[in-house]
């Protein structure tokens, strides 16, 4: 290794930041080169004093009040986040609960209606056949009986269905 190449590596060597292979090569050179050794030691010393001066330097620090306020802010932020989450969660859960309740009620109604269903409506009843004195198409379903008063000549027709249930009359 040449002095020129070593000087390029010297800043890393000064902080022991070279890999083991290069460190071995550099040390071999430095041990045989007083000029490089002196330069390396000066650099190490300067950096070491700089670090010490930096440690002694007045850097800002937290006052207790500031620090507490920050921690409260962190905790408060979390609490607010939690509330927000709960609020959002509630917002989202509310329709879920509502939907679940509605579904439950619907199922209940269906079950109840199945369990307690009365006799279903029978076949649609036919409307009463129109009363007609002479309806050939319904002659077999409707029976009429005509009564004529001998005194007044008044005539009345009674209608009956095929079961002889009374269906109406016509004068």
């Amino acid at each position: 290794m040449t002095c020129r190449k070593l000087r390029k590596l010297m800043p890393l060597l000064a902080g022991d930041d070279l890999g083991p292979r290069r460190t071995r090569a550099v040390r071999a050179h430095v041990s045989a080169c007083p000029a490089c050794l002196r330069e390396l030691e000066e650099l190490r010393e300067a950096l070491s004093r700089f670090k010490a001066a930096a440690k002694d330097e007045s850097v800002p620090d937290w006052s207790e009040g500031e620090w507490k306020a920050l921690m409260v802010r962190a905790a408060g932020g979390t609490a607010r986040d939690g509330e927000k989450k709960r609020a959002w969660g509630g917002h989202v859960l509310l329709p879920r609960w509502a939907a679940a309740s509605a579904l439950g009620a619907l199922i209940g109604l269906v079950v109840l209606s199945v369990l307690f269903r009365g006799p279903g409506p029978g076949p649609a009843e036919r409307p009463d056949p129109p009363l007609a004195l002479a309806d050939a198409g319904r002659a077999q379903d409707v029976v009429s009986m005509t009564m004529v008063s001998q005194e007044t000549g008044l005539q009345i027709v009674w209608f009956f269905d095929k079961n002889f249930d009374y269906k109406g009359e016509q004068e």
Partner: peptide, 21 residues
């Protein structure tokens, strides 16, 4: 970057803080 930074710091020490050197 470290190599370059240490080199510059060294120059700054020589220039501005000879007492450190």
């Amino acid at each position: 970057n470290l190599s370059s930074a240490r080199r510059k710091i060294r120059e700054a020490i020589r220039r501005d803080f000879p007492h450190l050197e």
